[in-house]
Computed example of a mutant assay.
Amino acid sequence: MTRMLAIANQKGGVAKTTTVASLGAALADLDVSVLVVDLDPQGCLTFSLGHDPDQLEVSVHDVLLGEEEIADVLLDTDDNVTLLPATIDLAGAEALLLMRPGREYALKRALAEVAEDYDVILIDCPPSLGVLTLNGLTAADEVVVPLQCEMLAHRGVGQLLRTVKEVQQITNPGLTMLGAVATLFDARTTHSRDVLSDVSDRYELPVLDPPIPRTVRFAEASASGTSVMRGRKNKGANAYRSLAENLWKHWDAGQKVRTLESGI
């Protein structure tokens, strides 16, 4: 059965797109068939997987509006994951979708046409709580929140959790909150540990194991349009491989997701 995971946080700069790209590549390395969906009009996921959004003629924008079949828009990548790309046109889709009945279900309907071809579908939601994020949450089985381990990084988490609860009540009763993924984590500082402890206690939100360490390799990979999973080994890639194994054991073998203890 295909598992659909939404990666969502309305705050930017929390390594959301890096998490989708790296987790997708790590799952592919486990021989899992993966589709990644770029729902951000900035097209950062599309670029990070080697495709220039400015050069694409069709994208998820056309799929959501019913103007293209999803199978005709999918792209291959060097990371062995399939990509449903985004372009700046997606910014206009939000306004157009608002005028349509059942707007929250557009992505779910499109993915249903290809879901059986993949083991896992990862959805990169935009840094907002608009109709595109609602589409991602409505289509998904589960959701995780990338959370930067810095002061004030968890502002807005409560609002996101309220949105998830509303989606569970209205458009997707089966949606499950898996927890947070700690990004930009520095194990040497008490500050990072304090942030995670606060989030765990305040929102009763489990933190998935392992935390993702801060490393310059993520910025280098994004700038070059390649995945951090490729090239020489690094601690960031190793952490995402461990996270992928954690999630795949949960999906494939029914094991409970491994989480960090409160007050790391």
Score class of each variant (00 low, 15 high):
K235W: 01
S197W: 03
S227A: 08
R202C: 00
T190W: 00
A223W: 01
G236H: 07
D186A: 03
L184P: 00
L205Q: 06
T189L: 09
V195M: 10
R214W: 02
R230H: 03
L205T: 04
N172W: 01
G254H: 05
R155K: 12
G156V: 14
D201L: 13
Q168G: 12
E166H: 10
E245V: 09
S197K: 15
K233I: 13
R214V: 00
N172K: 00
N238A: 15
N246V: 14
V167L: 09
A180V: 06
V216D: 14
S224M: 11
D209T: 08
A221H: 12
A182F: 09
M151W: 11
V216I: 15
W251I: 09
L208G: 09
L178F: 07
A219K: 11
D198P: 00
S242W: 01
R241I: 10
M229C: 06
D194K: 10
L178S: 08
L247A: 10
N246I: 14
R202E: 10
R232L: 09
V181T: 08
N172E: 01
V164K: 11
A221L: 12
M151A: 14
K233P: 05
A253I: 00
L184D: 01
T215M: 06
N172S: 03
D198F: 08
R217M: 11
A239R: 13
N234P: 12
N172T: 01
V181M: 02
R155S: 07
W251F: 15
M229D: 04
V207C: 10
A237F: 12
Y203P: 04
T226P: 00
A182H: 01
T215C: 11
Q168E: 12
T163N: 02
G179R: 04
H191M: 08
K235F: 01
K165G: 05
R162C: 00
L160G: 07
E204C: 00
L160A: 10
V145P: 03
E150D: 14
P206N: 05
V167R: 04
A237N: 05
L208W: 13
S197Y: 04
S224P: 00
L208Y: 11
D186G: 01
T176V: 15
A239Q: 11
G158L: 03
T176S: 14
P146Q: 05
R193W: 03
E166Q: 15
S242E: 15
L208K: 00
A182W: 02
W248L: 15
L205K: 03
V216W: 03
R155F: 11
F218P: 04
L161V: 04
S192M: 00
T189I: 03
D252N: 11
T176M: 06
R217C: 07
Q255M: 11
D186T: 03
V216S: 15
E245I: 08
A239F: 10
S227K: 09
K233C: 04
V199F: 04
K235M: 05
P206V: 08
M177A: 06
T176E: 14
A237P: 08
